[in-house]
Write a protein that binds this DNA or RNA. Structure first.
Length: 972
RNA sequence: GCGCGUUUAGCUCAGUGGCAGAGCGCUCCGUUCACAUCGGAGAGGUGGCAGGUUCGAUCCCUGCAACGCGCACCA
């Protein structure tokens, strides 16, 4: 027998309740599918048993770079509805939570933070910056998880994953390696989308085209005239092109024409290419392969005829190279000045001032993107795998990634809700191009590509045996003053010591075993600081001392230069000095000697600027000129090399340098469904011996992927590709796409517009349940969601209504346990229970069909306008024992009495003495019990049906009504 | 240019081949024992426009318009 229910407070206090209830759920452990109990059958209302035994949703990991917004709340609510519903139906239900490091997005957020602090990542040390962002995301992650709990997310926290967890990173590396082995990933020089502000490449998806009106310049090129909006790229022109069918220009094709240019006379060859539209402009285009993707392709088609990319714009969007007086100007300034100059020298024929076109901009900062030629890693979307090794057994499919993704949906293995999204999906895949996955930022998963120092051959995901570092000593006073220091024993100054400490701290992350240092004071001190911080062994090596400057030692560099000319020569020039050749000889001898002895250790060489230079030359196989062109080594600067277990297959070298770039976050996100589930939980032998299924076997393919339609291409399509590629199976069976949340004026919410609704803020005011309900009702799949505080308030009122219904029901509760009552013979009871059954079937159907908005509205209406307004009102007389006095509902038969007699002490205060004796009194009593039980059954079922939508208030009431029971695992 | 979506009450949105729905807002009435964070009653829609299919269309088809979105592009 359960204890008597507590009476309810007069008001529902969501603040006190929500936290308490979430703790109760967590304590039960039922969010972890491994702990789920056998489902009890407590209801007289039948529901069909679920056929499938498990149910799994992988939560789209929110970005760990800020608080959750209302869009997250939509997703969390919809997923939680599905998860709670399926759990209540007895399925082994897993909802796996996580967080995304969100490479570029987080980098941008962090850049802004740095900017506010007057800092800038481009001058920061990689490791230092990484550590800071790591701390930043970890902090955000914890806040975010707290927010998910506040939203009632019933996910399994024991399986929580972060996209930078080592096991996830390993999976991502393995995928990259497999792609490489299958010939589906390659590194190539292409003209890519470059954001000059963020200084990184972007994928095609991250480009936002905006319409702009710009002048269209008609420029005379010798006998021809062409139109361009970018006269400033003229310096990078390497040819002219016309359409092969354009008769006007046939006679020029293959010929070289001479043209007057801003910087003098130019000669260009004219090529014929289909890409040129004869109807646009004059039908002649200039070919600028370095700064226009289309021109780059024209060049590739005419490689033998015309010169390749000639770079005239740099990474910050300024003119560079052979551009005369325009050097250093930003693109926009240069455009005007070049145009003015053209006009001046009479080659500007005319200007169409109102030419509208689409301009590629950065989707984050809105700056105009600069097409630049850069070698990047690309994934082939439309090519079949071509394994590098002859062993093709490991191939999961012989189809291109694109074709796999198309087929899975075409064959109906993956269903989209709403269905119309399929068309968009197919259309995108049809036109897809190779995916640039390199990003020139620090925050992310660093690409596991190592380039052989000897020959440049890449090695993917190799085993690293040891890391070797070249470090220049910290600053000395002579450095500061600009004096040449060779073998003089000048100590570090304060700055030098602090530089050395910073470097030491960084090196500590790499578990240094050995420090090999030049014995000169400035190196010795630096090395000792590194030793003290890292605890590594320190030895000295005479062959690492600085170049002997001979007569110039101790002189100010400018004075020395004045007197002796160029100081930086391969052969000795200054009396008594060494040339770089001499330094190179002895330094390389020392390096190889120690490498033989210590190749398995992590080693730091502490040495001098000149020595580092010569070592870099040898290591990187530079020509002599390249060594001198390269900027000089800064005090305490570090160069890292990796010693790989296996030698380079091409040249036999074992020293490599890792690609500094990181992956596009979506590359790792694309692997999220299987990466999170492939992680071994407990020992494999345990799983094997107990014949337990691993998470991957149990839950993959997952059931539903619920996310916003705005990341259909970014994420969903790529998950399908990567899932199929790695596992041979689809990652999920159904994709449910929700809309974007808009404000009352249908504006997209954004921080900059200031129209954001903070879901946690309004939850604090109106309760989480009200927010969830407001986000679900009227929210058809794929349609944008309009939310207002009024609507939330409306559902807060509903929670209050529910609470008051509970107060009424509980106040009539007898000392009965919650058991299945015998069927009431009372017509009214039977009719109401029959209607309840219908409503339940309807709601079940709606939820199964992902029509959550309809399910929510149905239960809302049933509870308020049927149960509360009609049923309760009609039952009031019976509950008061008045029904017989009016000869109402119940037939004069006692058979309908529920098994669990509800007589003694039932609703004590309301039992009037006169009615509790005699046969008439008995009938009244049994009718009251039947009425109550019907009411309680309907209410309990209503609570269940509402629970996925409004979990907190329903659980709280359930606790009061049936102390000791848990609604969260009640049988649906 | 190609494609997609939307157009229903004052506002924001659901839904259905057969008397048109919700929330909020509005009007009137009501604080008696679940509930004023409420209850009761009510006003309010030629369902964008024009055709077609049908016994019957808000729903299906065609065209148009307005708004929104996605994709692709030529300098």
């Amino acid at each position: 027998m359960n204890p008597m229910p507590e009476s309810l407070e007069s008001r529902y206090d969501h603040k006190a309740t929500e936290e308490k209830i979430y703790r109760l759920w967590e304590k039960s452990g039922y969010f972890n599918p491994d702990n789920l109990p056998f489902v009890r059958h407590t209801s007289s209302v039948k529901s069909h048993d679920a056929k499938a035994k498990s149910f799994c949703i992988i939560m789209p990991p929110p970005n760990a770079n800020g608080a959750l917004h209302i869009g997250h709340a939509v997703g969390v609510t919809l997923q939680d509805i599905m998860v709670r519903f399926n759990r209540m139906r007895g399925k082994k239900t897993l909802w796996l939570p996580g967080a995304d490091h969100a490479g570029f997005e987080t980098q941008v957020v962090f850049d802004k933070k740095l900017d506010k602090e007057g800092r800038n990542r481009f001058v920061m040390d990689r490791e230092e910056l990484w550590k800071e962002i790591w701390d930043f995301t970890q902090k955000n992650k914890e806040i975010m998880y707290g927010q998910l709990k506040k939203l009632g997310a019933s996910c399994d926290w024991s399986r929580e994953k972060f996209t930078l967890d080592p096991d996830i990173v390993k999976t991502v590396y393995d995928t990259f390696e497999k792609l490489y082995e299958d010939g589906l990933v390659y590194r190539d020089l292409r003209v890519i989308n470059w954001c000059p502000k963020h200084r990184t490449a972007l994928s095609d998806l991250e480009v936002k085209y905006v319409e702009r009106e710009d002048p269209l310049y008609y420029i005379k090129y010798g006998p021809l005239t062409l139109a361009t909006v970018r006269p400033e790229t003229k310096f990078g022109d390497t040819a002219l092109a016309v359409n092969p069918k354009d008769k006007r220009y046939t006679r020029y094709v293959g010929k070289e024409i001479e043209a007057k240019g801003v910087l003098g006379t130019l000669k260009f060859k004219v090529v014929a290419d289909e890409a040129v539209d004869p109807k646009f402009g004059t039908g002649v285009v200039k070919v600028t392969p370095a700064h226009d993707p289309a021109d780059f392709e024209i060049w590739q088609r005419h490689k033998n005829e015309i010169p390749g990319p000639k770079i005239v714009i740099d990474e910050s969007g300024r003119l560079t190279g052979d551009v005369g007086e325009f050097k250093g100007l930003k693109v926009a300034e240069a455009r005007e000045k070049v145009a003015a100059k053209m006009k001046e020298i009479g080659i500007l024929e005319k200007i169409d001032e109102h030419y509208t076109h689409q301009v590629a901009t950065c989707y984050k900062c809105g700056n105009i993107l600069e097409p630049l030629p850069k070698p990047q890693w690309f994934i082939r979307m439309t090519a079949k795998p071509q394994p590098k090794t002859s062993n093709i057994q490991h191939l999961t499919s012989n189809k291109s990634l694109r074709d796999m993704a198309v087929e899975a949906v075409r064959k109906g293995k993956i269903k989209f809700i709403p269905k119309r999204i399929e068309k968009v999906y197919f259309h995108w895949l049809k036109n897809i191009r190779d995916w640039n996955i390199s990003r020139q930022i620090v925050w992310g998963i660093r690409i596991p590509a190592y380039f052989c120092l000897g020959c440049g051959e890449p090695k993917i995901n190799p085993e690293v045996k040891a890391r070797w570092f070249l470090v220049r000593h910290g600053e000395t006073d002579w450095n500061k003053e600009g004096r040449l220091i060779g073998n003089s024993d000048i100590p570090l100054n304060d700055m030098g010591r602090s530089q050395a400490r910073a470097t030491a701290k960084k090196l500590k992350l790499h578990n240094i075993d050995l420090i090999i240092s030049s014995p000169l004071a400035r190196c010795r001190e630096t090395a000792e600081i590194i030793r003290d911080v890292t605890g590594a062994e320190l030895i000295f090596e005479d062959r690492l001392i600085e170049r002997n400057h001979g007569k110039t030692e101790g002189m100010l560099r400018k004075d020395a230069e004045k007197e002796f000319g160029n100081l930086y020569t391969y052969e000795p020039r200054i009396p008594g000095s060494e040339g770089y050749r001499d330094v190179e000889l002895r330094a390389w001898e020392a390096f190889t000697h120690h490498k033989n002895d210590h190749h398995h250790k992590n080693v730091v060489f502490v040495t001098h600027g000149g020595v580092v230079r010569t070592l870099l030359k040898k290591l990187r196989n530079w020509e002599v000129e390249r060594m001198f062109q390269n900027p000089s080594v800064k005090n305490s600067e570090v160069f890292e090399f990796d010693v790989l277990k296996k030698q380079c297959t091409k040249c036999g070298g074992d020293l490599f340098e890792q690609d500094p770039d990181v992956f596009d976050t979506w590359f790792s996100s694309a692997q999220w469904p299987f990466a999170t589930l492939m992680i071994s939980r407990g020992s494999k032998s345990k799983i094997k011996s107990q014949k337990l299924k691993s998470d991957f076997e149990e839950f993959y393919p997952t059931d539903v992927m619920e996310t916003g339609y705005d990341i259909l291409f970014f994420w969903v399509a790529r998950m399908v590709m990567m899932g199929l590629y790695r596992t041979g199976k689809i990652p999920f069976k159904t994709v449910y796409l929700n809309g974007l949340v808009r404000d009352k004026d249908r504006e997209k919410m954004s921080k900059s517009k200031g129209n954001v609704i903070d879901p946690l803020g309004v939850a604090e005011i109106y309760g989480t349940d009200a927010v969830r309900m407001a986000l679900v009702v009227g929210n058809a799949p794929g349609n944008d969601i309009v939310i207002s505080e009024d609507k939330i308030r409306g559902y807060r009122n509903f929670a209050t209504k529910l609470w008051n219904i509970a107060r009424f029901v509980v106040s009539h509760k007898s000392a009965t346990s919650y058991q299945q009552p015998a069927a009431s013979k009372n017509k009214e009871d039977r009719e109401n229970l029959a209607e309840l059954k219908k409503i339940k079937a309807k709601i079940t159907r709606h939820v199964e069909r992902f029509e959550f908005h309809l399910a929510a509205e149905t239960i809302y209406h049933y509870i308020w306008h049927t149960f509360a307004d009609k049923i309760i009102e009609r039952y009031k007389p019976r509950l008061r024992g008045e029904s017989f006095a009016f000869g109402a509902a119940m037939r004069p038969s006692g058979h309908g009495a529920p098994r669990s007699g509800a007589s003694e002490g039932a609703s004590p205060a309301r039992l009037l003495a006169g009615q509790s004796s005699g046969s008439q009194g008995q009938k009244i009593l049994t009718d009251r019990a039947a009425a109550y039980h019907t009411l309680e059954t309907i209410f309990a079922e209503s609570l269940k049906m509402l629970h996925p939508f409004m979990p907190f208030v329903t659980e709280e009431i359930f606790q009061k009504l049936f102390p000791g029971e848990l609604l969260v695992t009640e049988k649906w």
